[in-house]
Amino acid sequence: MVADWLLDTCALNKSFGAVVASEALSLQVRRGEIHALIGPNGAGKTTVINQLAGELLPDSGSIHFDGRDITSLSVHRRARLGLARTFQISTLFDGLTVSENLALAVQPRLGHSYRFWRRADRDAALGAPVAELLDRLDLGALAGTRAGALAHGDRRRLELAMALAGRPTMLLLDEPMAGTGPESSRDVARLLDSLKGHITMLLVEHDMDVVFSIADTVSVMVSGRCIASGPPEAVRTDPQVRRAYLGEDD
């Protein structure tokens, strides 16, 4: 089958000293799908995200994004190619307001920021997309609040808004619902579902209800290796997966 892989990683290996974080890991994400990456704690999911985003370089193996070899590209180059990410622990500009956070996040898409004279806060080119994001993520009422003073659920939404600001073709989502209440989890899930088709997503998530309700493909990682990958139903019934992972939960 010739598929339209947006992201194609081949035989990634990464170890930290004696600890193997990724072992012969191959992962293909089809354009437009939501691809969930699940596995027990310590399986190496965040390490995968960090390698895809460029914060860690794999010891061996290759990563292709949109047909292009990005294995050794820097973090910011990958982001500019349309590969955005969120962090498991919200990584915001705590001293800046919500609007300012978003205004920064919008900038890379508008070209370089070697603009030294005009006030950024009166810059319509920034203001319009920021307003749109505030609206879309329901953050309008908090526009003037410092990010450091936000409640946890709002921080998670801002985290997601920052990643969307660059209008990426693909999102790497590292537990976007971690630590939020059930209601806000549902909101985020609904939002992700609404983006389906427009933005390809690799979703690391522990909430199995969410995973199995919105994902098109599920890959299961255990100890740095990918032990199964396929449609949710097939993965759910895979005996190997049940034994290695899902079985623990029952």
Binding site: A53, E55, S74, V75, H76, A79, R80, A84, R85, F87, T91, L92, F93, D94, G95, L96, E100, A103, L104, A105, Q107, P108, R109, S113, Y114, R115, F116, W117, R118, R119, A120, D121, D123, L126, M162, A165, G166
Partner: peptide
């Protein structure tokens, strides 16, 4: 107060995020 200045302040607060945003 310019875009450049915002980028600098952003780097000061969270350089990792700045890179992830594409700077």
């Amino acid at each position: 107060n310019s875009r450049f200045g915002m980028v600098i302040r952003g780097c000061a607060q969270n350089e990792r995020r700045m890179r992830a945003l594409g700077f």
